[in-house]
Each structure stands twice: as C-alpha cells, then as structure tokens.
Simulated assay, not measured.
Amino acid sequence: MHIRALEENDLIHIHELNNKLNVMAYWFEEPYESLSELKSLYQKHIYDESERRFVIIKEGQFAGIIELVEIDYIHRNCEIQVIVKEEFQGEGLAQEAMEKGINYAFQILNLHKVFLYVDTENEGAVHIYKKLGFEIEGTMVEQFYMRGEYKDCYFMGLFKRNWKQAQM
C-alpha cells in the first residue's frame, strides 16, 4: 500500500465514495456531490495550501483517500480524515494510511498537532486512533446531524512530540 497526491483522474473514484450514505456518514457529511461539482471543487482548491489530499493505492487499485484539511500554518495544526473503500476494509489500510498522513503532517509540514472528529459510536475507528496515539480531548454533544438524528463525537488529538516518542 502507498499513498500519492490526488489527481484529477482520481475524481471518478472520489465521486463514487462521496455518493454513498454509509461512507459519508463517517465524515458527518451528506452524499450529494455530482462529478461536475467535484471537478469544479478540485480546480478551485488545486493550489489551496490549507489542504492536502492523497489517494490510497493497493496493488495498483484505488482503495481510499486520506486528507489533511484546515491546515493552519500559524497554529501548526490540521484535521485528518480517512476513508477506505468497503472492499478494502478490514485489511489495515486505514491505519497504514493514517500513519503516512500523520508522518506527512509532522515531518513535511512541520505541524504541531493533528486532530480529528469521530462518532462516539464508531468503536473500531476510535480503537485505531488510540492505537496511533490520538487521545480523546473531549466529547462534542450533538455536534453533527446524520441520518435523522444528532450525533455526539469525540474530538481527538495527537501532538508531534507524542508521535515522535511512539516512533522510537
């Protein structure tokens, strides 16, 4: 498995992910994007320094996406997000992609902290994030509306100093 920068020809795969309710629920977003809208957003953000998007490739196939968004160069932090296609889930790709995304954030961008939001009921994801060194910093009550109800989420963070220690 490896990651590489998102290219315009990857958008067809992103479009497929973005239009699945069960997938977008993990990001607390509704599935709605048309391919033309996605292409327009890609063009709009191609030079945006506040985000980095990578595709996850396994054996030459698109397997998912890992994103660093809301990159803040003053406070030196960003949000990280990952989605693995259903047929590749359970193979450890999310954790491996997260490791690569975190390394990029800390080693290339020199960020101080990486954070994420995760549904309190998504025990599998919480387990992976804790394994990577993320700590629950708080619970955001009824923060997101998904599938007809408000959902609580954890705000989890990982500091560069803790990541470096875990890598030793």
Rank of each mutant, 00 (worst) to 15 (best):
M1R: 06
H2R: 13
R4C: 07
R4D: 05
N9F: 14
L11Q: 00
I12W: 09
E16W: 09
L17A: 07
N18D: 12
N18C: 12
N19P: 04
K20P: 03
K20H: 15
V23F: 07
V23C: 09
A25Q: 12
W27F: 14
W27H: 09
E29R: 14
E29H: 11
P31W: 05
P31T: 07
L35K: 03
L35G: 01
S36K: 14
E37S: 14
K39Q: 14
K39M: 08
S40A: 13
L41A: 12
L41R: 15
Y42E: 04
Q43M: 08
Y47E: 15
E51M: 12
R52A: 06
R53Y: 01
V55G: 04
G60A: 06
F62E: 08
A63S: 11
V69P: 00
V69W: 01
V69I: 15
E70H: 14
E70W: 14
E70I: 03
I71E: 07
D72T: 09
D72Q: 13
N77D: 11
E79I: 07
E79C: 02
I80H: 06
Q81T: 10
V82R: 01
E87C: 13
F88Q: 08
Q89T: 12
G92D: 07
G92P: 01
A94H: 03
A94K: 01
Q95K: 15
E96L: 13
E96G: 09
G101W: 00
I102Q: 00
I102P: 00
N103G: 15
Q107V: 14
Q107I: 13
N110F: 09
N110Q: 11
Y117Q: 11
D119L: 02
T120Q: 07
E123K: 15
G124W: 01
V126K: 04
K130H: 07
K131D: 02
G133T: 00
F134G: 00
F134S: 05
F134W: 04
E137K: 08
E137L: 05
E142H: 11
E142C: 12
E142V: 07
E142G: 12
R147H: 13
K151N: 10
Y154I: 10
F155K: 10
M156H: 00
L158W: 01
K160S: 11
W163T: 02
M168T: 10
M168C: 12
M168S: 15
